[in-house]
Nucleic acid binder design. Structure first.
Lengths: 201, 201
DNA sequence: AACAGCGGAGGACAAATGTCACAGCAACTG
DNA sequence: CAGTTGCTGTGACATTTGTCCTCCGCTGTT
């Protein structure tokens, strides 16, 4: 019996996947969480064989949780299940020690199959996505540039961002300018979009 | 047997929901589509009792499809199933003649129950959401303001927007200013967010 | 005919934004 | 040690953005 932990924030999706996986003879969903911060504690509690993690969750992101699981519960494999097949996400997932990366676009049948393959020691990654991740290259943004960009997503002014990140407004503008330059865009908004698109935030 | 059409763009979600509904004794999923433009033709073809529509789809939106279904196939009830419980969405769904509005956050069990209730002639709407929709008031933006705002979502400059909407740059700035004023925000980006949030786009 | 209302456009102005050059400092690398 | 890179900060500058006021032409109303 494959003991599975499922982390997904959308209630309906979570419930549906749990029910589906429960229908499989060899798979058992032993825990469901809807919050990123609950992943590691729950995993330590129920000790699953595999954790199925969404990336975008309330609280800690699935990628962070994956990295922490790697050391906290090395026996547990991680399969990332996400809406967005962003190159940077895949890259970070691999760096976090995930064994597989699945996008929610595909057919449901893929899911159980992927779980079994991961448990068998295989790595499960969409080949097209892998190619995109490699061709896109690594994240060109520095930590600070990411900070400033993420603080800018909701339309905050330079002053707002400066306050949030504890920097001088002038410095914030420099970082924004740098980010705009590196992403090859023309303004904040485009830079944010481009960085999001690539999974650089 | 309740004949159901399912429109949802995420393959895994669509497949999972279809399987789940198929497990119910009295429900039968007679068609699945992943594209908004396919909804009406498919419905005319299979003549379902109820259409389960996501709002944000490639091609036509689920709301537009709902409105068209209303006249093209009046016997078919519409149940909107969406990720975002935005007041404006709910309002538009009701105006489009939908019989129910469900957010994907809730438990899966709600879905089959909602379908049965809709078929029984009831209207299914989350009370909290209904209150929010009423308190938020109607969409304050004019058609042009919406056009300009939607053209601004991806960080386009005034010139870009002007070209897309076939207006003078000066006019575009006026509309943006109006939209910013009406949404009570400080700049484009915030205005776009606010309008999105409320389902005004 | 006079009127108001609205969509579109222009001008002028202040504020915010993006760019650039430069400088000090810390940390790492060869 | 010298060189590089990243972080933080200035100051100056051109451009863009947001605001406000005005004007024109069309439409429908009284």
């Amino acid at each position: 019996m494959i003991r599975t932990l499922l982390a997904e924030d959308q209630g309906m999706m979570r419930g549906a996947l749990a029910l589906l996986l429960g229908l499989e003879d060899d798979i058992e969903v032993v825990a469901q969480v809807g919050d990123g911060d609950a992943i590691v504690p729950t995993a330590l509690d129920v000790r699953p064989d595999i954790a199925l993690l969404d990336i975008e969750l309330p609280g800690r992101s699935g990628l962070d949780a994956a990295a922490e699981l790697r050391t906290a519960l090395p026996s547990c494999r991680v399969l990332i299940l996400t809406t967005f097949g962003r190159p940077g996400y895949l890259r970070r997932a691999m760096e976090a020690g995930a064994s597989g990366f699945l996008v929610k676009d595909g057919p449901v049948e893929d899911l159980a199959a992927a779980i079994r393959r991961v448990l068998a020691g295989e790595r499960v990654i969409d080949p097209a996505l892998a190619a995109a991740a490699l061709s896109a290259g690594p994240n060109p943004l520095t930590q600070r540039e990411r900070d400033v960009l993420t603080a800018a997503v909701d339309g905050a002014t330079v002053t707002d961002i400066a306050a949030r990140v504890h920097l001088s407004p002038a410095t914030v503008r420099n970082y924004l300018s740098a980010a705009i330059g590196k992403t090859g865009t023309r303004n904040r908004m485009e830079a944010v979009r481009a960085a999001r698109q690539n999974g650089w935030l």
